[in-house]
């Protein structure tokens, strides 16, 4: 419990700083602020990874088994995804939006009541390991660390969520930038944004990662449900909402190949998709009754 908390506190600080420095870099246009922001993001990534590793050590199972741990995983995914994006395309203005999201996620994780945070042994339905992996790892005495469909399911789902979070940030930027371009606005703060065509493309690329990951998440969840509950699909609210979000993003992809639906409408769909994700993630757990423990 202790070490993971230490790393959590550190990471929390790093995310505040990263978001602030990205904002500073964007508004003040100081290059060194941007470099600082990027370095801190790398440190934050390391620190977040350590939270997960420590949690795994403390609980003896993969660190994705309650709401708190899943939030950390979510933040980890956002950070990693963002850094890859920045490394490839060098747009630091996006960081101001995306790292703020990561910070908000950290904040809400820290505000969770204790019962969502504590290290718990797994209840019967959550225990599932791949036999082949257990056999393989037991040769070196590490069978404790074998994972199963559940861990795979949560991990892929959250990689998907993270990608969608990034595309959400980008879609908002797109709408802002698109409006200013339509008005012929040039300079000002928005000059640091990539142009709207680029933002559209970047939003698409992140969704092109998120969509298959969410699909793998849904399918692996179905495989697991087939083990645990006896049916691969039972229209449980969480399942249903994951399908809903998936449909919204499918609509987004098709909107992009449909005349008259490109750009703005697609961006709205991407935003709607992320709102559905938020509901899928938080709303369903607290509002609707169902079989899922959390995420």
């Amino acid at each position: 419990m202790v070490l993971s908390l230490v790393f959590f506190s550190f990471s929390f600080g790093f995310y505040i700083l990263a978001a602030l420095f990205y904002f500073g870099n964007w508004t003040l246009k100081k290059k060194w602020l941007g470099q600082l922001a990027t370095s801190i993001s790398y440190v934050a990534l390391f620190s977040t990874t350590m939270i997960l590793i420590m949690r795994a050590g403390e609980s003896g199972h993969a660190p994705f088994s309650n709401l708190y741990e899943s939030m950390v995983l979510f933040v980890w995914g956002i950070n990693l995804g963002y850094l890859i994006l920045e490394y490839r395309h060098k747009f630091k203005a996006i960081g101001a939006f995306v790292m703020s999201l990561a910070f908000l996620a950290m904040l809400s994780a820290s505000l969770l009541p204790y019962r969502f945070k504590s290290v718990e042994p797994l209840n019967p339905a959550l225990q599932n390991k791949w036999h082949w992996l257990v056999d393989l790892l037991s040769k070196v005495g590490l069978e404790k660390y074998a994972i199963g469909w559940l861990d795979f399911h949560v991990f892929t789902t959250f990689v998907g969520y993270s990608a969608f979070a990034i595309s959400f940030g980008i879609s908002i930027m797109y709408l802002i930038k698109n409006r200013s371009e339509a008005r012929g606005g040039k300079g000002g703060l928005l000059a640091a944004f990539p142009d709207s065509k680029m933002l559209d493309e970047l939003g698409y690329r992140t969704i092109a990662w998120g969509f298959p990951f969410l699909a793998i998440g849904i399918v692996s969840g179905a495989v697991w449900a087939n083990y645990a509950w006896g049916t691969y699909w039972s229209w449980d609210p969480k399942e249903t909402w994951s399908l809903i979000t998936w449909f919204i993003y499918a609509a987004y992809l098709h909107a992009r190949v449909t005349r008259g639906w490109r750009g703005k409408k697609a961006a709205y769909l991407s935003i709607a998709g992320f709102l559905a994700i938020l509901f899928l993630y938080w709303g369903v757990s607290f509002v609707l009754p169902g079989l899922h423990a959390y995420a």
């Binding site: 399908l243 449909f247 919204i248 499918a250 609509a251 098709h254 909107a255 449909t258 559905a276």
Partner: peptide, 10 residues
Amino acid sequence: LTLAVMLTLA
């Protein structure tokens, strides 16, 4: 139609 059906289903 695809868009309409998908969003209606959702």
